Computed example of a mutant assay.
Amino acid sequence: MVNWSLIRSNGGRDSSNKIRKSIVSFMTKHHPGSVIDSIERKYNAYKINLMNGLCLVFDEDGRYVKSN
């Protein structure tokens, strides 16, 4: 289970809630049942590593950018 409270943004609490909601919505729709291994904040992006080896990148607003 991911500790979503660790995800913060420069925009404050409301902004970080929006980012979490966006990422969770994407994960639910496109990767149901996937388990998140880790989340890293990289400058202006979020890198989410899944247990199956897939890496998803989201921008600073929580919008999906690409998979590695």
Rank of each mutant, 00 (worst) to 15 (best):
R8D: 02
C55Q: 10
S34R: 15
S67P: 08
S34L: 12
N68Q: 10
I39Q: 01
E40C: 02
G62D: 01
Y46T: 03
F58S: 10
N17R: 14
K29F: 10
L56H: 06
V24I: 14
E60K: 15
G11E: 01
E40K: 01
R8V: 02
I23G: 06
N3V: 02
L6H: 05
N17H: 09
Y43W: 09
C55E: 07
K18S: 08
L50K: 11
G11P: 03
S25G: 12
V35Y: 09
I19V: 11
R13Q: 01
R13E: 00
S5C: 00
V2L: 13
N68W: 05
N17C: 05
V24L: 11
S22C: 04
I36P: 03
D61N: 14
L54I: 14
V24R: 12
Y43T: 10
M51A: 15
V65C: 08
S22H: 02
L50Q: 13
N68M: 07
D14Q: 10
C55T: 13
K42N: 11
M1W: 07
N68V: 04
L6Y: 04
S16Q: 09
M27Y: 11
M1I: 10
E60G: 14
I23M: 14
D37Y: 12
R13S: 01
V65W: 05
Y46H: 03
I19T: 06
N10K: 08
N68E: 11
A45Y: 06
Y64I: 04
D37Q: 13
L6W: 02
A45N: 08
N49F: 08
L56V: 12
R8E: 03
N17I: 09
S67I: 07
V65T: 07
E60P: 01
D59L: 08
K21L: 07
I19Q: 04
M51K: 15
G62M: 03
L56K: 08
C55I: 12
R63V: 05
L56M: 06
V35N: 14
G12H: 04
N52T: 13
K66Q: 11
R13M: 01
R63Y: 04
